[in-house]
Design a protein around this nucleic acid. Structure first.
Lengths: 237, 237
DNA sequence: CCAAAGCGACTGGTCCAACCAGTTGACGGG
DNA sequence: CCCGTCAACTGGTTGGACCAGTCGCTTTGG
């Protein structure tokens, strides 16, 4: 018998979540001042320090701008927030349309995955190519178990992105896979076809191993863009 | 006579910066415990709350994992940090090789920019296409002034990414352009050729306006990948 | 009368001191 | 030898005080 971990979210985490959702959902217009820290503390019934911790995190996400003496103002997150915002967003339909965000994430995954495969074929160290070959075998060995295959598939792609030697791609990969909305937690049926195509994964690994940049890019794109098309056609399974 | 603003960086900002650099530079191994908040407060000579604010931000970046009762442990940022990390990194050679990061950012820019142009040509609203056409004109009107051209170019690309309707691309664009190392602050000579090619920008806008997805993607890629090649050949100007 | 200096009444920034709430490990009884 | 207990950590939260900027109103000087 297993229990879900109770809501042990710290106070400042809860405040952070509430304010983040309020801002992303547009309940404050860009440029509007947030209530003062003291007011927020009273409103949430918590200490001011908890509010401050939440506000610093919102500031780092690019959702608000705090300035000493002046008010803390809401920013236009579409202009100032970074990709990590997607990582922290809960899958709440009332904050952002989930279906669109899923499609967007899959599109970005295809775009970056294909280019990472290309770069990986171009300039990965032999040891990195070995790791990829091995990851493919682990993935193939998991074959009947969809959950394990998904996990191994993610590990394989991480190896490929690492092999590309592009830190920006690696960080973006982390952002995309870490969120609740991310590729890893996506309804698996969307990616079943992709996940089951062991032959295509093997081919991709071989092309990378052989240094065929164009071939690897094409193989990766073919593998990754099927899910985009599926999500676009019928966003809600 | 103008003065640069003095170091008004708040205490917790400074603590955040120091710890972030220490972690990214690898002065703590992944899994290592950070000193306790009380120790850090004593070491930096500041209050514990300042340390806490910094640690919460580090946690959000994915650099550390804090857990009540246990120690705050350093994480492997290459596995857990999101793209926003690149946004906050100062251009300090001793933290990460700047040349490589520049190349990486330019590569990602080319990859996402090309796909955004494709999607924009495919599914942007007519009003969005108008905005792009207008942005191109503003860019062309700035012609002799390189600084203004760079600014207008950035605004144009923002319109294109917005027109793609992909939120992930938009947030990634923000991450890439917001950092100190970002495209906007890059040594301009790297992108002079790209910036001066008014005709190519016009063609790109027309292809998007005409809904030619493949053409727009090709034009964007051609425009954006020149800087990548330049950066790769001679990283230090 | 109007502008500019000045003065409060805000805002966020920092600190102190205490206590609550988990985790960890060592110590002692079974 | 194993296992419960407990003390000494860890981070989490609170209250209150004060510093440091900003903003707007009021008073003052032209």
């Amino acid at each position: 018998m297993t229990f879900e971990p109770l809501s042990r979210e710290s106070v400042s985490d809860q405040v952070f979540g509430r304010l983040r959702d309020a801002v992303v959902a547009g309940r404050y217009a860009a440029g509007d001042p947030l209530p003062s820290e003291r007011e927020l503390a009273a409103a949430f019934g918590v200490n001011r320090h908890a509010i401050r911790e939440a506000l610093r995190r919102l500031q780092q996400l690019g959702l608000v701008r705090v300035s000493q003496g002046g008010a803390t103002r809401v920013q236009d997150w579409r202009a100032t927030a970074g990709l990590d915002l997607a990582m922290t967003l809960a899958a709440a339909e009332d904050v952002l349309p989930v279906a669109t965000l899923n499609r967007d994430v899959l599109e970005m995954r295809a775009c970056i995955g294909a280019d990472a495969a290309r770069l990986c074929a171009e300039r990965a160290e032999p040891s990195a190519r070995d790791l990829i070959a091995r990851a493919v075998e682990e993935y193939a060995a998991a074959v009947p178990d969809l959950a394990r295959m998904a996990e191994a598939d993610l590990a394989l792609w991480r190896r490929i992105v690492e092999g590309s030697g592009n830190i920006a791609y690696l960080l973006a990969f982390n952002s995309l896979t870490a969120g609740a909305l991310a590729v890893g937690h996506m309804p698996p049926q969307r990616r079943t076809a992709e996940l089951l195509d062991v032959a295509a994964h093997r081919r991709l690994s071989e092309l990378i191993g052989a240094g065929d940049a164009a071939g690897a890019e094409g193989a990766a794109r073919a593998l990754l863009s099927a899910a985009v098309a599926a999500e676009t056609e019928s966003p809600r399974p």
